[in-house]
Design a protein around this nucleic acid. Structure first.
Lengths: 119, 119
DNA sequence: CTGTATCCCCAGCGATACTG
DNA sequence: CAGTATCGCTGGGGATACAG
């Protein structure tokens, strides 16, 4: 599909972490504790059931997330990060840090501009 | 718009590097040499003029890329990475490495499956 | 050479309802 | 509790033509 290998590699990596809710899902799972479906929903108040399911399935497909079903009534399903998924931790952490600095930077610029307007 | 700060920070970071062609544009500019508009087009054979312009404008807006216009005929415009843009280098590099390993891993799995089918 | 302007399509996501 | 199934919208991106 893509002939350019470098492009391809970026796409492959980004596919695994991009998606409106993927980074934050991974962020929570990387805390270490396995989480149930509804626990994740509570942590992400604005996500729809549909998107949570879809994203988890994709992460499972990439073997970044492991899904364990406890055969009982009512059903219980736990999601946890895999060993392989943990290799994403440093990248997610860097992204998080950079993003934090970036929003602060933008707010600073905005404040400066408003200051200039009142001059 | 987003109340969750962590989500917000991820979004801010990803906005700066996500976009179908942004990572590879940055990859080339991070090599260090300023590049002209058409040089970038040649490096990204499949990008449209429109998308190259749009992505460069967004990167410029975030002060990740600097645009220098040489007032001459025919026009000459050079794009280069900024100091601030360089802070993205380690993240892009990690993404690139991880993506490379990820595609190799997937190809391995695929080969294994095809092996099993012929058993 | 370095762009804009238009038009159009589709994949990602949301809302809502239903189910074992 | 942990999901599917449908339907519909929106915005990111592509194709093409035009312009300073």
């Amino acid at each position: 599909m893509q002939k350019n290998p470098v492009q391809c590699q970026f796409v492959a990596a980004l596919d695994s972490i991009v998606g409106k809710w993927k980074p934050i899902i991974l962020y929570h799972l990387l805390q270490g504790k396995p989480l149930r479906f509804n626990e994740l929903r509570r942590l992400l108040p604005d996500i729809t059931q549909r998107m949570l399911t879809l994203h988890l399935r994709e992460l499972e497909e990439d073997e970044i997330v492991k899904r364990v079903i406890y055969p009982q009534i009512p059903p219980k399903v736990e999601y946890s990060i895999t060993e392989y998924g943990r290799t994403l931790a440093p990248i997610l952490e860097s992204l998080h840090q950079w993003g934090k600095a970036h929003v602060e930077r933008k707010q600073l610029k905005k404040a400066e501009n408003e200051q200039n307007e009142t001059d």
